[in-house]
Write a protein that binds this DNA or RNA. Structure first.
Lengths: 354, 354
DNA sequence: GCAAGCAATGAAAGCGCTTTCATCAAGCGC
DNA sequence: GCGCTTGATGAAAGCGCTTTCATTGCTTGC
């Protein structure tokens, strides 16, 4: 910075001002400084800047996965809001590991982010305490918490799992299987929702559920379906914890000559892009990933730019929508979308699922 | 830090040493300090630490996409090497935009990373100059450069595209279509390889190529195939610039009652996980994503931990492998893998594709 | 025409650490 | 016992910025 100052014939402090608060500096100096910056290819040391100003312009984001198309949309939305505001997003992928998450949070706090966005509401006690004591806005996303650390936007996965199952039941299916992969907490809740529905509907799920401890992939969808079929011979319908498994199950049906949806209906979860492109197109429970990211980022921006004024609404349930497509049989309602919902304790939400 | 020092009854400098160089401090003090750190939930300010020591422990990684399963493996590999070494990986997704990349590089350099890993070899002049002048190790990955900025690990996409096309030709196909999405430079090279093969084989590609400016997704595979079929009526084989398009094309074939591989052969690119799980399984050109990430990270680690000693080998061609599966017809060779290669100017590489 | 006010710039202090350098006590050989 | 080394600790300086606070030269209003 001193070099730039010398070249522009001003003091270093003026350079700092020209860069940070251009309105405090005369037009002419501003130009001289900018020229010098150009010539010398000067890049301010962000670390020193952050240290001196105690504004790091960093927001930390923890995601449990990147393979998953889900988090790409979500991250993209966050960046779209934060980057234009000059805020750098620090992403850490903790691969569905609570202990990696704990470490990641600790490491991130060492960078003194101005806010943190974490996925899910199932942080360990230590993670929670770290976040709570960080003294910065925290947003938990993707799931709804009874007692959020700070702000919270998400949806109720138990209800969503319940609704998907009930949807298949209403279509006339009784032997409804559930396939699930590595048990991230939200997938487990969807499973719980399935189980709740089966119980309430008086159906046994005996032999109809298959799960794996490994992270999900398409192939696993086939494997898990095969497992269920080995148990129970046949099924009417399949609800999977995500779209990859649904796709795998769909292929397994092709392989076995089982017609979808005539013999078996399939419902996935997340409504990734490819769901509309399969044969038949996959019915899936659609979640508003981008909206969760956008909301989280905007809430944070409002707080850190708006003198700590907090948004009036600290909790949002974005709900879900069952996108009905060919894999679950002919739509029997007029619309493409059926069965949406927000969790009851958030019915005050100003934003119903659209 | 002062608080910790007070609580432990030592000077701040001792705390710093206990944390940074535990071997320089007596056992007893070390314990006292660690206890105090625990009690106070002290997290060192990484910014101050980096500023004072001029070791940021940061490595910057630029990726053009996250949707893509490709970059997840690659990033995971990089983190697996760097995180255990106490290095934080700063990731920026530049969404296939050169201008976003330029900005991202500039921003990252403000954090004074100890090394940078960038995807591809097609940086703008300004990006190149920024990287060159950063004074830290740079690795370009995924592609091979004639004149790399610094280190380089990748593969020759022209040759890979050529080989995939030639492979289909050798299977007896003549009407070989090529589907390609948003033109990232590597996809364009694969296209160029396809074109080169067609030219050399004396085949016309008239009407057989369809592309889109949008980022690829599964649905687009179907759309592009439809476009080609509208042009030319029928095709023998399809080579796509990635697996998403291959999957989409496969579904489009199902939809149209075209048998794969009897009527049409399909070859994708990248060999993502799902290729083995489709019906029929997709033949795809497999690339060593994890290995590229691992190599880049290890090369960097060696330099920044090993007193700047540079690895003997600065350029590596990892080649590719055509994973032959059902979608391209019966394997006519004994092995699952055929046609591999490294680019000729790197034939000296000590590591042939395995 | 002069004090008050203001805009533009610079000097100095300090953000929270690490690192060099100095200090001090203990251990050692002769 | 004296000078030496050695290991452990502390004091001070400084990393590259930003932010108060002080200074300077001007414009104002009456």
């Amino acid at each position: 910075m001193t070099d730039v100052a010398n070249r522009a014939g001003v003091s270093p402090v003026t350079v700092s001002r020209a860069l940070r608060h251009p309105e405090m500096v005369s037009e002419e100096l501003l130009k001289r400084v900018n020229d010098a910056v150009q010539k010398l290819n000067y890049i301010p040391n962000h670390l020193a800047s952050a240290l001196a100003s105690t504004r790091t312009q960093i927001v930390g984001v923890i995601v449990p996965s990147l393979t998953n198309g889900v988090f790409d949309d979500y991250l993209g939305a966050i960046q779209d809001v934060l980057n234009p505001a000059g805020i750098q997003v620090l992403v850490t992928n903790v691969r569905y590991s609570e202990i990696e998450e704990e470490k990641a949070i600790q490491t991130m706090l060492g960078y003194h982010p101005e806010a943190m966005i974490v996925t899910g509401v199932d942080q360990t006690e230590r993670s929670t305490s770290l976040l709570r004591n960080a003294g910065v806005p925290i947003v938990q996303t993707m799931d709804v918490a009874g007692a959020p650390i700070d702000m919270n936007i998400g949806l109720d996965h138990i209800m969503a799992g319940y609704a998907a199952t009930k949807y298949l039941y209403d279509l006339g299916h009784r032997l409804i299987a559930h396939l699930t992969a590595r048990g991230d907490p939200r997938a487990r809740r969807r499973h719980a929702g399935y189980q709740k529905a089966m119980d309430e509907l008086g159906l046994s799920s005996q032999g109809l559920v298959a799960g794996s401890a490994r992270p999900s992939d398409v192939e696993m969808g086939g494997t898990l379906l095969s497992e269920v079929l080995a148990n129970v011979g046949r099924v009417d319908a399949i609800f999977t914890c995500n779209d990859d498994l649904a796709l795998g199950a769909l292929f397994e049906c092709h392989r076995r000559g089982i017609s979808v949806p005539e013999d078996v209906a399939i419902v996935g979860f997340n409504d990734l892009d490819f769901c509309g492109a399969t044969v038949p197109p996959l019915t899936s429970v659609s979640t508003e990933r981008r909206r969760m990211g956008t909301w989280a980022a905007e809430a944070i921006l409002e707080i850190i730019r708006g003198n700590g004024r907090r948004p009036k609404q600290m909790r949002v349930d974005v709900g879900w929508v069952i996108k009905e497509r060919g894999s679950s049989g002919k739509p029997r309602r007029r619309a493409d979308q059926v069965s949406t919902g927000v969790s009851p304790d958030m019915a005050h939400s100003d934003h119903e699922p659209s």
